[in-house]
Amino acid sequence: MPLSSQLTALEMSKGLAPTPANLDRITKATDAEAARWAFGQWDLRARAKGRFPEPERLLFVREALEQATHRGLSEYHASLFPAGKLVVDLTCGIGGDLMAFAARGPVLGFELDAERADYARWNLEAFGRKGEVRQEDGLAWLQEHEAEYVFADPARRVDGKRTLDPDVFSPDPFAVAEAASGASRWAMKLTPMLPDETLARLALRIEFVSFAGECREALAIGGSEPLEPGVWAVHPEREPLKGDVPVPAEADLAEGWLHDADPAAVRAHALGNFGLSSLGDSPGYLVGPTRVDSPWLRAYEVIDDVAPKRLKATLKALEADVPVLKQRGAGQNLDVWRKDLKNFGKRKVAVAFYVRGASVRAAVISL
């Protein structure tokens, strides 16, 4: 746990800017290390707003905060396990997921780093949630003990850099899946950028999780409890969308309505659920003669479809204001386009660049 001098410095520095004068005053009252630590904690607490509940009550490690799960996703992770049952978190870090698990029942967390383990205990206590945090190897413990409900979030960085090589994840995701095979339910958070073949080897159910307009993670889920297998796009507030649905037919031009698919639906290969055609060779744009309403789609009426060299003239003729530019795999420098496409009028439109064969097209769509 933090030293008394650090806690004193933390309270004294509340609301203060980290100026040399403030740092010197708190150093004199405590010590230099405590003062630096305290101002560092207030900076991390500010960065954690929106990601953690009441971050001003919590303690953080900078790298752990960068890797921590957003509270909305932690709550979704917790929903995978029954209330009142012990959940074992093999990789609890500073306790982001652990706090969500503890809100629904008892928890046991494992963390190798002493500082992170201490902060996980503090963060649990800050909200009056009970749980045990052990500074030891969670995977090694699971290989020697039985657990009914298990969660893991293997580290995916080597020397501070992200990696997509599961062989260097820590702990090894395949070893976790094997050790958890006797559990009633286990779940493991992974990067959605892992190949389909790798994910399929880990579990019968793979969920690509949408949050705040992004595909944030892949969840491998297994266990002896009944579980609908397959690949799914999920969102904490939506019905799951079945993945691995045959790819829709391809349309050469944007006509009728253009639909921008949620990245998790794209990653789960779920675009065949909507009765629409894919647009060119760009993943995620779908078109059809009528609008399809779905929480997994954003629909825009198509005004025109042009080559980029004709875009400026088209927008001038429409007397258009273009506040939104987007693309799917088109490789366009949108900042350059923003400077070039000045407002030509008051009609609000957007431009969606997409790829068709070796060429790039621009769909002008209504807002």
Score class of each variant (00 low, 15 high):
residue 145 H to K: 12
residue 10 L to P: 00
residue 147 A to K: 05
residue 357 G to H: 11
residue 196 D to L: 09
residue 265 A to H: 01
residue 211 F to K: 06
residue 303 I to G: 00
residue 72 G to Q: 12
residue 48 A to R: 00
residue 122 W to A: 15
residue 200 A to V: 01
residue 351 V to A: 07
residue 15 G to K: 11
residue 192 P to Y: 00
residue 68 A to T: 10
residue 157 R to E: 07
residue 82 P to Q: 03
residue 304 D to Y: 04
residue 135 Q to V: 13
residue 38 A to G: 12
residue 6 Q to P: 02
residue 155 A to Y: 04
residue 224 S to H: 12
residue 332 Q to C: 14
residue 165 D to T: 08
residue 195 P to G: 13
residue 293 D to L: 15
residue 69 T to I: 09
residue 219 L to D: 00
residue 46 A to K: 13
residue 190 L to K: 02
residue 293 D to N: 15
residue 279 L to V: 01
residue 167 D to N: 10
residue 203 A to C: 03
residue 50 G to V: 10
residue 129 R to F: 07
residue 345 G to P: 00
residue 86 L to H: 04
residue 14 K to G: 02
residue 75 E to A: 15
residue 132 E to I: 13
residue 46 A to N: 06
residue 333 N to T: 11
residue 16 L to K: 04
residue 26 I to C: 03
residue 13 S to L: 05
residue 295 P to C: 08
residue 102 A to N: 10
residue 211 F to D: 11
residue 129 R to M: 13
residue 204 L to C: 15
residue 147 A to I: 09
residue 10 L to R: 00
residue 104 R to H: 14
residue 119 Y to I: 09
residue 56 E to Y: 05
residue 133 V to L: 08
residue 356 R to N: 12
residue 312 K to P: 01
residue 176 V to R: 03
residue 170 S to N: 14
residue 268 A to F: 01
residue 281 D to C: 09
residue 254 A to L: 03
residue 17 A to K: 12
residue 228 E to L: 11
residue 138 G to K: 03
residue 33 E to N: 14
residue 6 Q to K: 10
residue 162 R to L: 07
residue 39 F to M: 01
residue 300 Y to V: 02
residue 173 P to N: 08
residue 342 K to F: 14
residue 276 L to K: 02
residue 351 V to H: 02
residue 187 A to Y: 13
residue 286 L to T: 01
residue 216 R to P: 04
residue 299 A to Q: 01
residue 14 K to D: 09
residue 311 L to N: 07
residue 203 A to Q: 03
residue 298 R to D: 11
residue 142 L to N: 05
residue 281 D to G: 13
residue 240 P to S: 14
residue 333 N to V: 12
residue 78 A to G: 11
residue 77 H to E: 06
residue 34 A to G: 12
residue 62 R to W: 08
residue 302 V to Y: 08
residue 161 K to Q: 15
residue 56 E to P: 08
residue 224 S to N: 15
